[in-house]
Measured scan of single mutants.
Amino acid sequence: KLLSSIEQACDICRLKKLKCSKEKPKCAKCLKNNWECRYSPKTKRSPLTRAHLTEVESRLERLE
Score class of each variant (00 low, 15 high):
residue 10 C to S: 08
residue 30 C to S: 02
residue 63 L to P: 10
residue 17 K to A: 04
residue 40 S to T: 12
residue 51 A to M: 07
residue 50 R to M: 01
residue 14 R to F: 09
residue 25 P to I: 00
residue 55 E to Q: 11
residue 18 L to P: 03
residue 59 R to K: 14
residue 22 K to N: 04
residue 38 R to Q: 13
residue 12 I to L: 15
residue 15 L to P: 00
residue 58 S to I: 11
residue 27 C to G: 10
residue 28 A to R: 09
residue 37 C to I: 00
residue 51 A to P: 05
residue 10 C to D: 02
residue 22 K to S: 01
residue 29 K to A: 06
residue 40 S to A: 10
residue 40 S to Q: 08
residue 25 P to D: 12
residue 24 K to G: 04
residue 30 C to A: 06
residue 51 A to Q: 12
residue 25 P to M: 00
residue 20 C to L: 03
residue 61 E to G: 08
residue 24 K to H: 12
residue 33 N to L: 04
residue 29 K to W: 04
residue 61 E to M: 13
residue 62 R to P: 07
residue 46 S to Q: 01
residue 44 K to Y: 06
residue 55 E to P: 04
residue 1 K to F: 05
residue 50 R to Y: 02
residue 24 K to E: 11
residue 30 C to F: 04
residue 46 S to P: 09
residue 17 K to E: 01
residue 18 L to E: 09
residue 58 S to D: 14
residue 1 K to D: 05
residue 20 C to R: 02
residue 5 S to L: 12
residue 45 R to Y: 05
residue 54 T to A: 07
residue 50 R to E: 08
residue 52 H to Q: 00
residue 19 K to G: 12
residue 57 E to W: 08
residue 41 P to I: 08
residue 58 S to P: 00
residue 42 K to Q: 03
residue 27 C to N: 05
residue 63 L to Q: 05
residue 50 R to L: 06
residue 26 K to E: 11
residue 63 L to M: 10
residue 38 R to T: 05
residue 49 T to K: 05
residue 3 L to G: 14
residue 9 A to H: 01
residue 52 H to W: 08
residue 23 E to A: 07
residue 34 N to R: 13
residue 49 T to Q: 09
residue 36 E to V: 06
residue 27 C to D: 09
residue 48 L to F: 03
residue 18 L to A: 12
residue 58 S to C: 10
residue 51 A to V: 05
residue 52 H to R: 09
residue 32 K to P: 05
residue 11 D to P: 10
residue 44 K to C: 01
residue 63 L to C: 01
residue 48 L to E: 01
residue 8 Q to I: 15
residue 39 Y to M: 01
residue 49 T to N: 06
residue 35 W to L: 11
residue 12 I to D: 08
residue 56 V to K: 00
residue 48 L to N: 07
residue 33 N to G: 11
residue 59 R to M: 07
residue 3 L to E: 12
residue 44 K to S: 02
residue 11 D to V: 05
residue 8 Q to A: 12
residue 7 E to C: 13
residue 38 R to P: 05
residue 55 E to Y: 10
residue 25 P to E: 06
residue 46 S to A: 09
residue 13 C to A: 07
residue 7 E to R: 15
residue 31 L to G: 08
residue 6 I to G: 15
residue 36 E to S: 11
residue 17 K to H: 15
residue 56 V to T: 10
residue 4 S to D: 14
residue 35 W to C: 04
residue 42 K to P: 09
residue 15 L to D: 12
residue 12 I to K: 14
residue 53 L to A: 01
residue 2 L to G: 13
residue 30 C to D: 02
residue 29 K to I: 03
residue 13 C to I: 02
residue 12 I to P: 11
residue 49 T to Y: 07
residue 30 C to Y: 02
residue 41 P to H: 05
residue 20 C to Q: 06
residue 9 A to G: 04
residue 16 K to L: 13
residue 8 Q to E: 05
residue 29 K to D: 05
residue 4 S to E: 11
residue 34 N to I: 00
residue 20 C to I: 08
residue 31 L to V: 12
residue 51 A to S: 15
residue 23 E to I: 08
residue 61 E to D: 09
residue 26 K to G: 07
residue 53 L to Q: 01
residue 52 H to C: 06
residue 8 Q to S: 12
residue 15 L to Q: 15
residue 51 A to C: 06
residue 9 A to V: 03
residue 32 K to E: 02
residue 28 A to E: 14
residue 45 R to C: 11
residue 39 Y to L: 05
residue 39 Y to T: 04
residue 14 R to G: 00
residue 23 E to Q: 10
residue 35 W to T: 11
residue 49 T to L: 05
residue 30 C to M: 06
residue 59 R to S: 08
residue 53 L to H: 08
residue 25 P to T: 04
residue 47 P to F: 09
residue 10 C to W: 04
residue 51 A to K: 13
residue 58 S to F: 12
residue 41 P to S: 07
residue 18 L to V: 15
residue 48 L to I: 01
residue 50 R to V: 11
residue 13 C to E: 01
residue 35 W to A: 11
residue 20 C to D: 11
residue 9 A to K: 00
residue 44 K to E: 07
residue 44 K to G: 01
residue 12 I to R: 14
residue 64 E to M: 12
residue 49 T to G: 07
residue 9 A to Q: 06
residue 34 N to T: 05
residue 1 K to T: 00
residue 38 R to C: 12
residue 20 C to M: 01
residue 59 R to Q: 05
residue 30 C to K: 04
residue 62 R to F: 03
residue 39 Y to G: 01
residue 45 R to I: 09
residue 1 K to R: 13
residue 23 E to Y: 01
residue 36 E to P: 08
residue 57 E to S: 06
residue 20 C to S: 02
residue 33 N to Q: 11
residue 51 A to N: 03
residue 27 C to F: 02
residue 42 K to D: 04
residue 44 K to A: 01
residue 23 E to D: 11
residue 14 R to E: 06
residue 5 S to K: 15
residue 55 E to W: 09
residue 5 S to W: 01
